[in-house]
């Protein structure tokens, strides 16, 4: 996630079928960055094929929100998708009172477009969409070492609630 700046609000819209190829490319870059930052989240061999298969399915799901940010290339006419975000409304079993959880799953901005407020705008749009679908609480999981993403979410009103821990056979 990037840092917000002053200036006009970035253009965010719902993802369309015509975005699928770009979305696949952006998602693989997102997953690649996550794996670079946290090697325990490295990709499976068929991650791209699974993403190509999953994206059109996700696009048609009522409980999933998939948005993109567009930016112009300077000529005032052409725009390109430079960021995307994905959220999901999960309905948990009746264990806790708040059962309808809006999850901010992924937010990615192409590096050369960071620092222009795209991530903050996507978080706002995802948040509004998930609340509109009935979310009673919003959650996002961020790798421990990803300080920028944690700072972005804290600025948007999020506070740490849980830590995900891992243990691997033969280690520890």
């Amino acid at each position: 996630m990037d840092d917000a700046t002053c200036g006009p609000a970035p253009a965010i819209r719902a993802a369309r079928r015509s975005d699928l190829q770009t979305l696949t490319d952006l998602r693989m870059r997102y997953l690649g960055e996550a794996a670079h930052d946290e090697p325990r989240l490295r990709l499976t061999a068929d991650a791209r094929a699974r993403t190509e298969h999953a994206l059109p399915v996700w696009m048609g799901q009522e409980d999933r929100v998939l948005v993109v940010a567009e930016a112009g290339d300077g000529d005032g006419e052409t725009t390109h998708v430079v960021a995307y975000g994905m959220g999901y409304l999960r309905t948990a079993p009746p264990v806790l009172v708040r059962r309808h959880v809006g999850e901010l799953l992924e937010v990615f901005v192409v590096p050369e477009f960071r620092g222009q407020g795209h991530a903050a705008a996507i978080v706002r749009v995802l948040t509004d969409a998930l609340v509109g679908r009935g979310a009673e609480v919003l959650r996002a999981a961020v790798p421990m070492g990803h300080a920028a993403a944690q700072a972005r979410l804290k600025k948007a009103g999020y506070v740490p609630v849980q830590v995900e821990l891992e243990r691997t056979l033969g280690r520890g």
């Binding site: 609480v137 790798p143 506070v159 740490p160 995900e164």
Partner: peptide
């Protein structure tokens, strides 16, 4: 406790009330 028995922290889950 979990750190003491060999677990390592992977992600932090953040939450915002609606």
């Amino acid at each position: 406790f979990w750190n003491a028995v060999g677990w390592s922290e992977l992600e932090v889950v953040l939450e915002r009330p609606v």
